[in-house]
């Protein structure tokens, strides 16, 4: 598997990372290096092994349906670049 410059541009756009055109080639090379390194895992025989999302044998913890937090309006909005009347305020996002 390898990526071309268009794929890099697309992924950068999806991730909201500004990438200049003159950076694309170098980034594509870097990403292809990483991908081919990861592809070495394909050499391991995984026949009959269940896919897993974690390496630790444990079950997920569940929480009771109780309200345990709230009224953190100041704390929650403290780091926002813009705010008004308890809301986050951002540049308009509809046409």
């Amino acid at each position: 598997m390898s990526v071309d410059q268009n794929t890099v541009r697309h992924i950068a756009r999806l991730a909201r990372i500004a990438v200049r055109d003159d950076e694309l080639e170098a980034l594509a090379n870097e990403l292809n290096g990483i991908l081919s390194w990861v592809e070495q895992l394909g050499e391991v025989d995984t026949d009959g092994v269940e896919p897993m999302t974690g390496a630790v044998e444990m079950v997920m913890k569940w929480r009771e349906d109780k309200v345990t937090t709230g009224n953190l309006q100041k704390e929650v909005t403290a780091n926002a670049p813009g705010g008004d009347d308890g809301f986050f305020v951002v540049p308009k996002v509809v046409e």
């Binding site: 929480r63 349906d65 109780k66 309200v67 345990t68 937090t69 009224n71 953190l72 909005t77 009347d85």
Partner: peptide, 20 residues
């Protein structure tokens, strides 16, 4: 009463960002 992955209230109509 609480959200899917947190202990904040789900009640409708509260002041903005008070149930976060």
């Amino acid at each position: 009463n609480a959200k899917l992955f947190s202990g904040a209230s789900t009640e409708f109509g509260a002041e903005p960002n008070t149930q976060v």
